[in-house]
């Protein structure tokens, strides 16, 4: 009787384990099913590389190139802000901060990493956009530039935490060996610590890009929303996520527009999946390199 109970419990846990696997496939399945009409109706190449996104027009045009361009440009704009600052802050924490500073700064950064993106979107809308509009004398404050800045700041804490982690994995013995050869702290940092943590930092960047591509609320609020390929850094853009979030409310269920939005979701899903797998691959190699693989 006892062993029957044990077996049943085991099955229950196994079922729960498999359910999370099922969820991942479930997400894929839903995206595939809901986007099927669009896949059937629209040529996938025209969809991906079509230069016009005009779902409300008749005849409607469903080319997501401007949306992809929007996502990429915002992501890379934000990356160029958050990676130097985030990695720099991580190096500061790892190398320069004293014990007390670290004890305060690390949890604070962690807390900031948890601030919801809607807050940053809101802040971008009420503070950053008007400020930039005035400073650069722009026609509209909400644009690629604003979105990059807001997303960049927003992602710093996450980048800092992952980089700090990668740095703390570098064995002490590496540094000690360098010091023993007469290298000073800066040389040790640039020649030993950073290369050793290099792939960890790479992972941070890739995860950062994935995260930025998937970021929704803040870009929805501060990117400007124009579905055109950006001509300058001050152009308003509409990243993929923003398109889904903004248009799903208006798209009639079952319509081509609705299905096309799911197809965008699928593209987004596959991009982030690929980035995720890539980062996992790198970090696995990295652990092996430092002799901490299992």
């Amino acid at each position: 009787m006892n062993s029957l109970k044990e077996r049943l419990i085991k099955y229950a846990f196994t079922a729960m384990g498999y359910l999370s696997l099922l969820l991942l496939f479930g997400i894929m399945a839903v995206l595939f099913i809901e986007s099927r009409p669009a896949v059937k109706e629209l040529n996938i190449l025209n969809f991906l590389f079509g230069p016009q996104w005009r779902p409300a027009r008749t005849p409607a045009e469903y080319g997501i190139l401007p949306l992809i361009a929007g996502s990429l440009s915002v992501s890379f704009g934000a990356i160029s802000i958050c990676v130097p600052l985030g990695a720099g802050a991580a190096l500061y924490l790892n190398e320069l901060a004293g014990e007390t500073q670290r004890r305060v700064l690390k949890p604070v950064i962690e807390i900031l990493a948890g601030i919801p993106s809607i807050i940053f979107g809101f802040f971008g809308l009420v503070a950053v956009a008007p400020f930039l509009q005035e400073t650069f004398n722009l026609p509209v404050g909400v644009c690629l530039f604003t979105a990059s800045i807001v997303l960049g700041i927003m992602t710093i804490p996450a980048i800092t935490t992952i980089c700090e982690d990668a740095l703390s994995f570098v064995p002490r013995s590496f540094k000690e060996a360098s010091f023993a050869m007469g290298a000073n702290r800066w040389q040790t940092l640039t020649k030993v610590t950073i290369p050793a943590a290099g792939s960890g930092i790479c992972t941070a960047i890739i995860l950062g890009i994935g995260r930025l591509m998937g970021e929704t609320m803040s870009v929805l609020m501060v990117a400007g929303g124009a579905a055109v390929i950006p001509k300058s850094i001050f152009s308003p853009v509409r990243p993929m996520t923003a398109a889904i979030a903004a248009e799903m409310g208006e798209a009639a269920r079952g319509s081509m527009h609705y299905s096309a939005l799911f197809l965008i979701g699928l593209v987004l899903f596959l991009i982030t999946l690929a980035l995720n797998i890539l980062s996992e691959h790198i970090s696995k190699k990295y652990r092996l390199k430092l002799g901490q693989g299992r």
Binding site: V30, E34, G210, L261, L268, L275
Partner: peptide, 24 residues
Amino acid sequence: IIRVAVNNLAGVPSVVFGLFGLGI
């Protein structure tokens, strides 16, 4: 396999979860 699935689930953009919720 499940571990990998869970890791990847963590990286799925939140709006995609929204689409999933809408669909299911």
